[in-house]
C-alpha cells in the first residue's frame, strides 16, 4: 500500500497543516463573515419588506375603516337632519292647529255670550210681558189693580220657582 510509505508522512502532514491553516484563516476572518453579512442583510431586508408590507396593509385597513366610519357618520347626520326637519314641520303644524283651535274657541265663546245676552234680553222682555199679562189677568179676574212692584216680585218668584 503506497499510503503507508513512511517518507511522505512528514511532507504531506506539513503541507496539510499549511493548507488547512490558510483555509481556516481565510474562511474565519474573510469569507464566512462576508457570507454571513450577506445572509444577515438579506434577512433584514426581507423582514423590513415584510414589515413595510404589513404596515401598508394595516394603513390600508385603517383607511378602509375610516372611510366606513365617515360613511356611517354621514348617514347618521342625514338621518338627524331628516328627523329635525320632520320635527320642525310637526311643531309648526301643531302651532297652527293650536292657533286655529284658540280662534275657534274664541268665536264659540263670543257666540255663546251673544246667545246668552239675547236670551237674557228675551227673558227680560218675557218678564215684562208676563207682568202685563198678569196685571191684565188680575184686573179681569178680580178687578184689582196690582202694583208694579208686586207684579215684578211675583213674576220673579214664579220664574225662580220654575227655574
Amino acid at each position: 500500500m503506497p499510503q503507508l510509505e513512511f517518507w511522505h508522512f512528514l511532507p504531506q502532514f506539513f503541507w496539510l497543516a499549511v493548507c488547512f491553516v490558510t483555509l481556516y484563516c481565510v474562511m474565519a476572518f474573510v469569507a464566512l463573515p462576508r457570507i454571513g453579512g450577506v445572509l444577515a442583510r438579506r434577512k433584514e431586508k426581507i423582514e423590513a419588506d415584510l414589515d413595510a408590507a404589513g404596515k401598508a396593509e394595516a394603513e390600508a385597513d385603517a383607511a378602509m375603516r375610516a372611510h366606513e366610519a365617515s360613511l356611517v357618520g354621514a348617514r347618521e347626520a342625514a338621518h338627524a337632519v331628516l328627523a329635525e326637519a320632520a320635527e320642525a314641520g310637526a311643531a309648526a303644524a301643531e302651532a297652527r292647529r293650536r292657533a286655529l283651535d284658540a280662534e275657534v274657541a274664541g268665536r264659540i265663546d263670543e257666540a255663546r255670550r251673544a246667545i246668552d245676552a239675547a236670551r237674557a234680553e228675551a227673558m227680560d222682555g218675557l218678564a215684562g210681558m208676563a207682568a202685563e199679562a198678569a196685571r191684565a189677568a188680575t184686573a179681569k179676574l178680580i178687578g184689582a189693580a196690582v202694583s208694579d212692584d208686586d207684579l215684578a216680585g211675583a213674576v220673579a218668584a214664579a220664574r225662580e220657582g220654575r227655574a
Binding site: 517518507w7 511522505h8 512528514l10 511532507p11 504531506q12 503541507w15 496539510l16 493548507c19 483555509l23
Partner: peptide, 17 residues
C-alpha cells in the same frame, strides 16, 4: 534537514484550498 517536498498530494491540497 526536514524533508518538506511538495508532492502530488500537497499539490492537490493546495488546489483544493
Amino acid at each position: 534537514g526536514l524533508d518538506l517536498d511538495i508532492t502530488n498530494s500537497a499539490r492537490v491540497m493546495a488546489i483544493a484550498t
